[in-house]
Design a protein around this nucleic acid. Structure first.
Lengths: 198, 198
DNA sequence: GCACTCGATGTTAGGCAATAACATTCAGCT
DNA sequence: AGCTGAATGTTATTGCCTAACATCGAGTGC
């Protein structure tokens, strides 16, 4: 009953570790969207993926990490670094984010939408979203500091821009019309750097 | 050792409810700062306040609420409402917050500092801080919407401004120099509405 | 004064997240 | 084959949080 799905690999390019992780995440998201986050236990997720609950916690430090784990955050910092260094801090962050957005309308978009939607609908997960953003915030701030901006200003600018982005992301995933993510995000940045009104 | 501080009331104007609540919060903050948040159990807090752990949860829905409960958030929304309605959304929110800040350097400031410091040093509590800000964010956004700003723009503007404010608050409470809170907060807003550089 | 209700509190029991200690199985290497 | 170390499972424990039920106190009508 338990050793049924582990023998045909040894050659699959994605390591069994990555596979198990993906299995856990897929099972979790499916169960969350079917039964709700609170009604789904870690035990259930693990059983569904064919592992024990301990294995779950070895891949994800907390239950909410299976939803919050983004991974596409570092790319954002890189985009800000590529933006013109002469601009004032907030404008530069906005410019960097705008550039990053052009690569965001991908095929996997609907999966992201599901993930974010689950997170948006649960208070504890929303809080986790903000916490996860802090890492990105620091990464962006570091880029600015390297170009001579004061640490305080750098943190404020990146925090404000990411807050705007988060609002846009939450609204996008909860909206019914399937407009592209990038248009929402762009509109949010407009509010910050005054493209719409001067 | 434990039944020492509970017998002289029955007439005190502040209802026993409010007193119990204050007792619980005081005990919690003291224990948190002495032993750390994780090392302090709800049982311990309740015993210290002379009640059962169930009573704790009747006053605070979760353990972290005893730290996060601010209450001085609604005043902020009122200040934004009083700011000139003609400004673009972000500028107006900043103006309102600036006005609110003049009333913020109060005697009780060091208590606030302790509370925020406890929150700032613990990841889960930091996350809770952001979540608690959402209520304020909505309140501010409602003010803007009432004056004709689109809901989306309103949410983005208030989220960005509050994110800037939060960064300032966290830095202030963790800094060693006892500069007034308002100067930090003012500096953060400068980054947003370009008072420093144009 | 007495029963009655209602609200606040305590007691007890239980579910679930998260962690730790220890056993076991598996993979690669020699 | 045998060794070693990593990954996983088993089991037990702690602590947050909830729910069901009991208790106590203060008011209220009789």
């Amino acid at each position: 009953m338990l050793g049924n799905n582990i023998q045909l690999m040894t050659v699959t390019s994605t390591s069994r570790a990555a596979r198990t992780r993906a299995l856990l995440q897929a099972a979790a998201l499916r169960l969350f969207s079917e039964q709700g986050y609170d009604a789904t236990t870690v035990e259930q997720i693990a059983r569904e993926a064919g592992v024990s609950h301990m294995t779950f916690f070895r891949y994800f430090p907390k239950k909410d990490a299976v939803v919050l784990d983004d991974g596409f955050d570092p790319a954002i910092a890189a985009a800000v670094a590529a933006a013109p260094a002469g601009l004032p801090p907030l404008a530069r962050v906005c410019a960097g984010l705008r550039a990053a957005l052009t690569h965001v309308d991908l095929p996997g978009q609907e999966d992201v939408r599901l993930r974010v939607r689950i997170a948006a609908e649960h208070p504890a997960l929303r809080a986790g979203t903000y916490a996860a953003t802090e890492a990105t915030q620091e990464a962006i701030a570091d880029v600015l500091v390297a170009d001579g901006v004061s640490p305080f200003e750098a943190r404020v600018a990146s925090a404000a821009a990411l807050a705007a982005l988060t609002v846009a992301l939450l609204e996008w995933c909860l909206s019914d019309d399937h407009d592209p993510m990038s248009s929402r995000l762009g509109a949010a940045l407009d509010v910050l750097d005054g493209t719409t009104r001067r």
